[in-house]
């Protein structure tokens, strides 16, 4: 937790204190602040929400959004669901693979992380990608690499 102290995190989680229904939101808040959820933060959430660490860990590991390490500067989410399969995402995925990015394993290179996702809701303009939250339709390997590079600086 480089930039945040335990105290400041507990301060942010303040409104959720003693409320056992806030585990998920607490973890989301921490990830919003830090970009990931450090292991020590699981204890803070447990303490603040009034549940066991095991309970928090269970929630943390259930949802694929959560990271246990800091994200790369550019995070690229590539849709692998049916509509994007139909619009030819295989070419995009293998192109990215040729550039050293295995999206199925969330590989990182040059401060760019590429990961797979199931549906971004842009199914008429596939292949669909998101680069640091910005949607890209009709994605090609060149377009994705250019946008990722720009976002990683």
């Amino acid at each position: 937790m480089s930039n945040y102290s335990e105290e400041s995190i507990l301060n942010y989680l303040g409104p959720y204190k003693g409320d056992t229904s806030t585990i998920l939101r607490s973890l989301q808040l921490i990830q919003e602040l830090l970009g990931y959820v450090p292991d020590s933060a699981l204890d803070l959430v447990a303490k603040n929400s009034g549940v066991s660490r095991a309970e928090v860990y269970g929630v943390f590991t259930f949802y694929s959004d959560f990271r246990s390490t800091p994200p790369a500067k550019a995070v690229v989410k590539v849709c692998v669901a049916e509509a994007c399969q139909a619009s030819g995402n295989a070419e995009l995925i293998s192109g990215l693979h040729d550039h050293g990015y295995d999206i199925h394993n969330g590989s990182v290179k040059d401060d760019i992380q590429m990961e797979q996702t199931f549906c971004l809701g842009n199914c008429a303009l596939g292949p669909s990608v998101m680069v640091n939250g910005a949607p890209m339709g009709r994605a090609t390997c060149d377009k994705v690499l250019a946008a990722a590079k720009a976002a990683s600086v």
């Binding site: 229904s21 806030t22 939101r25 949802y63 959004d65 959560f66």
Partner: peptide, 18 residues
Amino acid sequence: AGSYVCGEETAMLESLEG
């Protein structure tokens, strides 16, 4: 938080309960 099954109504309730 990135879970497809949470679109199932009872899983959604669990998720809403944190």
